[in-house]
Every structure is written in C-alpha cells, then in structure tokens.
Amino acid sequence: MGRYLCKRILMTIPVLLGTTFVIYAAVYMLPGDPVQSLAGPGTVVSDSMAHAIREQYHLDDPFFVQYGNYLWGLMRGDFGIDLTGNNVAGVIAASWPVTVQLALTTWVIEGILGIGLGMLAAVKAGKLTDFLVLGSSTLVLGVPYFITAYVAQIVLGVKLGWLPVSGVTEGWPLSYIVPAMCLALFGLPEIARLTRSCVVETMGAPFVHTAVSKGLGRRRIMFQHVLRNSLVPVVSMLGVNLGYLLSGTILIEGIFNLPGLGYQIFQGIQVHNGPVVVGISTLLVLAFLMVNLVVDLLYGVLNPRIRLA
C-alpha cells in the first residue's frame, strides 16, 4: 500500500505541471489588455501608468519567464499577488469554504439519493418503479441544470419564499440547499443508473445465491453482500463527480451569488486578473487529483479482493 501511495503521489507531479502550463498559457493568450480591463471600460489609462503596472506585475516579460516565476512561487506555497494588489492566497482562503460546502452538500445529495434510487430500481427490476426511476433520470439528464437553477430560484425563492436563493446570509445549510439540489442534477441520474445495473448484476452472483441458501435475511444480503460488492464502480464515479463539483460550480455560484472559488474565477476572467484564475485553477486541479487518489485507496477497503499493486 505504501509503495503504491508513493508511486501515485509522484505521478501527480507531471500531471500538475502539465495542467498548470495549459492553464497559464490559456490565461496568457486571453485577448484584451488586463490593465485596461482593471481600469474599466471608457477609462483612459496614461502610458506611464500602464507601463508602471506592467513593470510591477512583469506583464511584459516573455511567457516562459512569467511561467517560471509562477512555478517558483508555487513551490514555496506562494500563489502570487493579483492585479488589484491582493494576495491570491487570501482570496482563496476567503472563498474556498463556500465552494467546499456547496460541493460536499451536492455530493451527499447525489450519493444518498442516487444509491437509494438505484437500489430501489434494482429490487423492482422490470416493474413500474424501475421504469419510473429510469424514465425520470433520462428526463433530468435532458434538461441543463442551470435552467433548473433559474426556475428553482424564481419559484422557491421569489414566488414562494421558502428558501434563500441568493448569497450566504442564512449560512449552511439553508443558503446551500437549492443550489446544491440543482447542481446534484449533474450526477444524480448517472449514480442511480450505475447503482441499478451493478446491483442487478451482483444479485445474480454465486455468492449471493449461497447467502440465500444459508437462510440469511433479505436486508442483510442486500446491504452486507450485494451493496458492498456493487459500490466499487459507484464510489469511483462519486469520486470523479466530487472533483468535478469542486471545479464546476462557476455557473451555479454566479446564479445564486455565492462568493466561492468558481465565482472568483468568473470575475477574474472578466477583468483579465490572471493570477487569481491560474492560482485557483491550480488548487482545484490538485484537489481533483487528491480526490481520485483517495477513491483508488478506498477500492481495497470496499472489496478486499482488490489488491493495489
């Protein structure tokens, strides 16, 4: 296990370097002038002021010089200073709790409802309940979650006033319930369908028939034998979804005015604030890699037959 863990950690280094290079290059090639974007449309920036800003933030340096300086700072735990003079690490520290709370709340909803509906459909395979679960999941997949978010915001927040749908004034969980439910539509149908297919397949396995012949209770068979052996691919998908949720909340945070990491990236792109975009994106890539590593390690816990070589 220790050898496998060290190998996987070492493998993340080239992946992280490659992704940071792509992100930095994409931000570097964004059209427009960052100095003018910060000043605002219609604002006249003198040549001397523009030159001073460019010199202060090394904006006129060659690309590889800028990228090398960023990597050197990153190795020392320094995400740099953004174009407004704020420490990027401070921006991340103020914003990450919102994104993490939203992503984890969404992830729990996906896991509980997805696995529950999948098991229900598997137990009732071929019956009306099974067709309802499969049909509703297909219908949900056909509607973009941001459209559902706008509808939920208008109906639940504006018309009915049941739950807050803007900002985090009410704190967790009230301010996160509606955006998390809308964002859960991203992965819940897939979790339900995958759980159903895995459970149906496992129910026909020889060890399940053996457990039935021994006279074990139906609930014990389902949870101790069937579900545990069906969860490996489901956990894998949940792990990937958590990584996507951490980095894919930009639109939802914008709709519900949640000041998280995704919202900071969106604002940074609008004003060409490259250090914020690159710094937060690098952090999200690292989080995605770590989540996938944890998921791989969980395989051996869920199914002892799996050995991590």
Rank of each mutant, 00 (worst) to 15 (best):
F64I: 04
D61Y: 12
N86V: 05
A149F: 10
P275V: 07
V88H: 02
G90M: 01
A309I: 01
G77W: 12
G68E: 04
L71V: 10
V278R: 14
T19Q: 10
I252A: 06
Q224K: 14
V226N: 06
V234P: 10
V155W: 13
T282R: 00
G90Y: 01
L38P: 00
M237I: 14
R76I: 00
K214D: 05
I252D: 05
V212R: 15
L283W: 15
L242A: 10
V27K: 00
L156Q: 06
A50Q: 11
R8H: 09
G114W: 09
G243K: 06
V212P: 00
T19D: 01
W162I: 14
Y176S: 01
V140I: 15
V44D: 13
W107N: 06
L284C: 14
A103R: 04
N257Y: 08
G85C: 08
A52D: 15
L289P: 09
G274D: 14
I53Q: 13
L38I: 13
G254K: 13
A103M: 03
L185R: 03
L102D: 07
P179H: 05
A122P: 10
F146N: 07
P31K: 07
S37C: 12
T12N: 10
V168L: 15
M237E: 11
G111E: 00
H272I: 13
G80K: 03
V276H: 06
E110H: 01
I280T: 05
T43R: 12
L308S: 11
G274H: 12
T12R: 00
A211G: 11
L74Q: 08
M49Y: 15
F186N: 06
Q56I: 01
V91N: 13
A184R: 03
I269W: 02
T105A: 13
M237L: 15
L183A: 05
I115L: 09
Y57L: 05
M119E: 02
I23W: 05
Q36C: 00
L246A: 05
G68P: 03
P304C: 09
P233F: 09
I269Q: 13
L298S: 15
V15N: 04
V143R: 07
G187D: 05
L59S: 01
A152E: 10
A94V: 00
P97A: 01
F21Y: 13
A125I: 09
T210D: 11
I250H: 02
T195I: 07
M75C: 15
G157C: 06
G171W: 02
P206D: 15
A152H: 08
I115Y: 08
S46L: 02
S281W: 01
L128Q: 06
I269S: 11
H272T: 10
Q224T: 12
